[in-house]
Computed example of a mutant assay.
Amino acid sequence: MANIKSYVSSSYDELKNHVTWPTNAEAQRLMVVVAVFSVLFSLAIWGVDELFSAVIAQYFNWVKF
């Protein structure tokens, strides 16, 4: 139990005194960057999925005959 208490105490000290936290403006700017890239990446994955679905559907149409 003493090890857990020591771990929590040292973790809190590390977060409070040794971590450089971003400013509110910087955090908001970074959040926008992450959101934009997430949307772009999801659209790219959707496009590839649609393309592969069409290719597979066309393949099965050719095989059916």
Rank of each mutant, 00 (worst) to 15 (best):
M1L: 07
M1N: 10
M1F: 09
M1G: 10
A2P: 01
N3P: 02
I4Q: 01
K5C: 05
S6A: 06
S6D: 06
S6Q: 04
Y7E: 12
Y7T: 14
V8Q: 02
V8L: 10
S9K: 11
S9N: 15
S10K: 15
S11V: 03
S11Q: 08
S11F: 07
Y12H: 12
Y12L: 13
Y12F: 13
Y12S: 11
D13S: 14
D13A: 15
L15Q: 14
L15C: 11
K16W: 05
K16M: 13
N17I: 01
N17G: 03
H18D: 14
V19I: 14
V19K: 15
V19E: 09
T20P: 02
T20R: 06
T20Y: 02
T20C: 04
T20Q: 11
P22L: 01
P22Y: 00
P22H: 01
P22R: 01
P22E: 00
T23W: 02
N24M: 05
N24F: 07
A25T: 14
A25R: 15
A25D: 15
A25K: 15
E26A: 10
E26M: 04
E26Y: 02
E26N: 08
A27L: 14
Q28A: 10
Q28T: 08
Q28I: 14
R29C: 03
R29W: 07
L30I: 10
M31G: 11
V32T: 12
V32F: 07
V33P: 04
V33D: 13
V34E: 13
A35C: 05
A35F: 03
F37S: 09
F37N: 12
F37K: 12
V39T: 06
V39W: 01
V39P: 01
V39F: 04
V39N: 01
V39Q: 06
L40D: 03
F41T: 12
F41W: 10
F41G: 07
S42F: 05
S42G: 05
S42E: 07
L43K: 07
L43C: 14
A44Q: 02
A44E: 00
A44I: 06
A44G: 03
A44D: 00
I45C: 05
W46A: 13
W46N: 04
G47K: 06
V48Q: 01
V48L: 15
V48F: 07
D49R: 12
E50F: 08
L51E: 05
L51R: 09
F52Y: 09
S53W: 07
S53V: 07
A54L: 13
I56M: 02
A57L: 09
Q58K: 03
Q58S: 07
Y59S: 10
F60S: 01
F60C: 00
N61V: 02
N61H: 00
N61Y: 03
W62F: 09
W62Y: 12
W62P: 00
V63G: 01
V63F: 10
V63K: 12
V63D: 04
K64W: 01
K64Y: 01
K64M: 00
K64T: 01
F65E: 06
